[in-house]
Amino acid sequence: MTAALAFTPSCDWAARSGSVRLMQPRVEVRLQQDKLWETLLARANDGDGAAFARFLGAVTPTLRAVIRRRGEALPADQHEDILQDVLLAIHLKRQTWRRDAPVRPWLYALARYKVVDAFRKRGASINLPIEDFADVLPEENAATPLSSRDADVMLGLIDARSASLVRAVALDGKSAEEAGETVGLTAAAARVALHRAMRRLSDVAERMMK
């Protein structure tokens, strides 16, 4: 197991579980929430301003999370601007939602269009030649939630020996055997400990994503 491989699977897993959590919270909760959103938006489209305010308030956290997760290329202070663009678009286009259609696919498709648009606009307006980014462009599916600071925070949440193992293997690129020696474990024990540490880190990542 190479150092890179040792860390990425759990990153991917964490990222995936994050998005699953975002798109599919527990089914019954989600159905209830959908129903509420649909009722609110239907009433809003009939002219009930208070219902529309509640609808926007209810969808804002989800939208904000998506924008933050997708928007690492932009400074964080622009995320709120993009969120406001999306909210404005929801208002302008809210009549394109059909009452007999589920609201979530409508909302996500609309928001995605607006977010992509907003990033493109801002990308164009800062007008940096793409060559400058050429060697730092993130990979398509690069695991996003684990910046090195996040990693430090997360490693602080598991026990010190596991943390030092993970740090040695995943971040400093040592083999499991080498890492095990430094904390006084056999190669096999080190691998088991590492595996458990990774699983705990995944749980931590999942909890941080909530």
Binding site: L56, D77, T96
Partner: peptide
């Protein structure tokens, strides 16, 4: 305070009339 302005925007949007239906 960006959060405040988003809340303001929501209030403002909620106060504006619903756009004409798209039929």
């Amino acid at each position: 305070t960006p959060k405040q302005t988003t809340a303001d925007l929501i209030r403002q949007l909620a106060a504006s009339p619903a756009p004409r239906p798209f039929r």
